[in-house]
Design a protein around this nucleic acid. Structure first.
Lengths: 152, 152
DNA sequence: GGCATTCTTGACATTCCCGGTCGGCAATAC
DNA sequence: GTATTGCCGACCGGGAATGTCAAGAATGCC
């Protein structure tokens, strides 16, 4: 019962954008450095996040990623599901229903499905905004957006 | 975010004993057949369950396993933890604390630890007895203990 | 236009562990 | 003593997890 690095990294990355750079395009390199994530790997993660509609991208100089959804509307479950698929505790759909007795298949599978829903609910109970608030409460300083507005 | 077969099998096996044979020694072969679990694999699972103190064993002819704890006191979490270790969402203890910014390590790790506790609580919210009751409610018939008392 | 920058895409390498098997030994009942 | 059953440790194949890489396409800037 473990969470993969991919999921962890994904949450960190989204949080990073929301906390430090919400509204601006943020580059892989920058996030990777702040969050200590292998850049090439992060690259791949962002493709999934984009496919899931959580971020948008812009190419070229001064490009990067930005949130496509408000932090308050991004639940951790959304990120995890985008990167790892749904929480699956019960049996994968098996073709042959004729093995074993029906009793425990029915009972245990039902129990596991119930649990899976509960667990999804746990993940959906926290949003990125919650994390940002927690970060501020802990006294961490956001890197102010607009700090790098280059005046020419 | 998946549950391994080992965990699933473990729950099924314990449930099987509780439901069909509570109080009697039950053999691997018998359980494996009823639950459609590879016998040699189940063998290995029971070693872990025994080490965790959930079952006791008896060797020799008419030997087998029986519950060491009342079904009402076996939480699914106990079984899962015995077979897969604790639920771990946060980072494994890393030596180098100097990478990345402290913000998101603090915030995300805290969040994940919180979630891990919630999830453990989900698993601990169901007991084997709950499953047995559910099984009876569904109308399944227990194989009556004592049915196989061999009169000589 | 030309160039540097940054994301895009798909393939590739590597390591780990899940899921399962096996052989042989130890206890026990009969 | 012999058949049965659990006990222990080793072993192994395959697939997923975790990254890496190369080449290409869009974009901004001078």
């Amino acid at each position: 019962m473990k969470l993969s690095n991919k999921g962890r990294y994904g949450v960190k990355a989204i949080f990073d954008i929301a906390f430090h750079n919400h509204g601006k395009a943020t580059q892989i390199k920058e996030i990777a450095e702040r969050q200590a994530i292998p850049p090439r790997f992060l690259e791949q993660i962002f493709q999934d996040l984009k496919r899931a509609g959580l971020v948008t991208s812009k190419r070229g100089p001064r490009g990067g990623y930005q949130l496509a959804v408000e932090p308050a509307d991004i639940r951790l479950g959304d990120i995890i599901r985008a990167l790892e698929g749904p929480v699956a505790l019960a049996e994968a759909t098996r073709g042959s229903e004729d093995e074993g007795d029906a009793t425990s298949r029915a009972v245990t599978d039902e129990a596991f499905e119930d649990l899976a829903e509960q667990i999804e609910a746990c993940f959906d109970g926290k949003t990125i905004e919650d994390l940002c608030e927690r970060g501020e409460a802990l006294g961490y300083r956001r890197r102010a957006p607009g700090k790098y507005v280059y005046v020419i």
